[in-house]
Design a protein around this nucleic acid. Sequence first.
DNA 1: CGGCTCGGCGAGTAGTATTG
DNA 2: CAATACTACTCGCCGAGCCG
Length: 288
Amino acid sequence: MKDIHLKEKSVHGESSFHLHIYHHIADKHYYVSHHWHDEIEIIYIEKGDLEITIDNHVTKGKEGDFIFINPQSLHSISSVANHTSIHYALVFSLSILSYEIYDICQDHYIRPLINGDLKFPALLDFKNSSRIKDEILYLISSYKNRKYGWQLSLKASLLKIISLFVEEDKLVNELKYLDIKKQYKIDIIKKLLNYIHSNYQNKIYVDDLSKIANMNKEYLSRFFKSFIGKTPIEYLNNYRIERACVLIKNTDSSILDISMNVGFDNFSYFIKQFKKRKKCTPLQYRKK
DNA sequence: CGGCTCGGCGAGTAGTATTG
DNA sequence: CAATACTACTCGCCGAGCCG
């Protein structure tokens, strides 16, 4: 089975050019579970609303908003109360802008952005930043049109966007605000999520997780919920059901085998949990 | 002192195994 | 398949300890 970890291992874009733009039409059940990656992600909400949680802080994005997710930030994305929405997600590695020789741009801006000393603000107020907005929209259209030399045009746009951020003094200097305690907690959550994703096929008890986090199990439940919005077991069941859905769609295995495979050793409990989340039985889901 | 973090207790709920 | 008993989990509450 494909090994899936919360830290995305997939390379965004072609292997020769690490920038990709996804166009998502998100229905009312749209939910991208907590994960993180080395790339920067810029979300442009074309239509509707989106709720994005970044490092335990909820950002409500409205139509026309741009949301910036910095490298290594733990984030999840979901639709807002029964509404569909359309958004672009620009995912790219800042290393495509790196220089091999020492350069003041590299030293003052690119490297600090890569290692997290400088960050983009989560939500940008575009009242006074229409140039940044225009440049991002231009970047999206360059990507779509793919005229000769489009990669160069995208690179130029990215540098232009960063230069506008610098010019307008909108980058956040993390060294000034570094919250070591908060970072420590985020690291624990990442550890727990990684453990769940690596071991969901086996039995997982809250006690196992509490040992990983060095907390007592009651506190861990609350700690986890305060970050993820679900208790550890709710999250685990949800993840198992999502994994089961993939197997139901893409394999001919029996529902019983699939339920065992994703870590449910109690078949009736699996059906119960499946119906609770998907509003149909696993077999009905396959027939759809 | 007040705010915050974390541990621990107890009660209620959810999940699971067993039995008839 | 339902009833039942047991275990695991969650959550409200309280208190200890730490820090500014």
